[in-house]
């Protein structure tokens, strides 16, 4: 399915707004992750504004697609996306991220916001749970009615539990499951291929019985096409390697692991001093927004 150029531009515009909101969120909170949310903004936009079967006004609709975020630390981008998509999160509430009493905890708490599906944070646990969701759907003969999506980080592929789940999904041929890895190549201590190499990731999953797709995670047309393709694959679970640029959209944050776990105002000072980081980042995103708007005219 090919979307019109206009629709693609609208999605790009939304992705850019979600980047801005994510940055505002972590900056106001004063702590949290920056690079991951920026890198995954296009995928979140494609899911929530095009691919997912969901109803923001009825988040527990039994036939909704389930989106399970395994690497909970990038939750600011999920909160920002849900806000823009019309879920029950207000602009005021966004400012309470990581504060006492807030539903928007530092890592997702599904008891406070059921639309999050699961509570997460500790790495390597999402794919197992997604398999549990998929098995339950199959037992209820609902596996054709809705799809299970699991978003994962690349670093959490160093957890053994991830591979236990990958093995099970292959065994049970969980065709209603698609896992998407944020392949940004960085983790807190450095570059994944130096910390603990993951490659060849594609053939690992293929040998576990998965169908593997690869996408340019900042090409909206490619993203929406591959997400549709994933849903259409029968008999096998699908693994999508989403090649992301961490910190995407802000040049001094891109591909810098120093920006993995800190917000603007606390980042590396080689480009801008701390007190200018947020304003400079926002300036770049605003410039991008103006570009997209002019392209849309």
């Amino acid at each position: 399915m090919s979307l019109t150029d206009k629709k693609i531009k609208e999605l790009e515009l939304m992705a850019n707004r979600i980047r801005k909101t994510s940055l505002e969120l972590v900056t106001t909170a004063g702590s949290g992750h920056t690079a991951g949310p920026l890198g995954m903004a296009d995928i979140f936009t494609a899911l929530y504004f095009n691919t997912l079967k969901h109803d923001p006004k009825n988040p527990t609709w039994p036939e909704r697609d389930r989106l399970i975020l395994s690497n909970g630390h990038i939750c600011p981008v999920r909160y920002a996306t849900m806000y823009h998509a019309g879920y029950d999160i207000t602009e005021e509430e966004l400012k309470t991220l990581r504060q006492i009493g807030s539903r928007l905890e530092g890592h997702p708490n599904a008891r406070r916001i059921p639309a999050l599906e699961t509570s997460s944070g500790p790495l390597g646990e999402g794919l197992s749970q997604a398999c549990g969701f998929a098995l339950a759907a199959r037992m209820d003969n609902m596996d054709k009615n809705y799809h299970i999506w699991c978003l994962m980080s690349d670093g959490e592929h160093q957890e053994g539990m991830t591979w236990e789940a990958a093995m099970l999904a292959g065994k049970y041929k969980l065709k209603n499951l698609t896992a998407i890895v944020d392949r940004n190549n960085i983790q807190i201590d450095g570059v994944t291929e130096e910390i603990m190499p993951l490659e060849p990731l594609r053939s690992k999953y293929e040998s576990f019985g998965w169908h593997v797709l690869e996408i340019n995670a900042h090409d909206m047309q490619d993203i929406v096409n591959k997400l549709e393709e994933a849903k259409a694959i029968q008999e096998k679970p699908v693994f999508i390697i989403a090649n992301t640029i961490p910190g995407k959209g802000v040049d001094f944050m891109e591909n810098r692991f120093g920006w993995h776990g800190v917000p603007p105002g606390s980042g590396p000072e080689d480009a801008f001093p701390k007190d200018q980081q947020f304003d400079e980042a926002l300036k770049q995103l605003q410039k991008r927004e103006d570009e997209i708007l002019s392209q849309m005219e």
Binding site: T118, G132, L135, A165
Partner: peptide
């Protein structure tokens, strides 16, 4: 993890 997913 499977148990948790089923329970959810």
């Amino acid at each position: 993890g499977i148990a948790a997913g089923l329970a959810y």
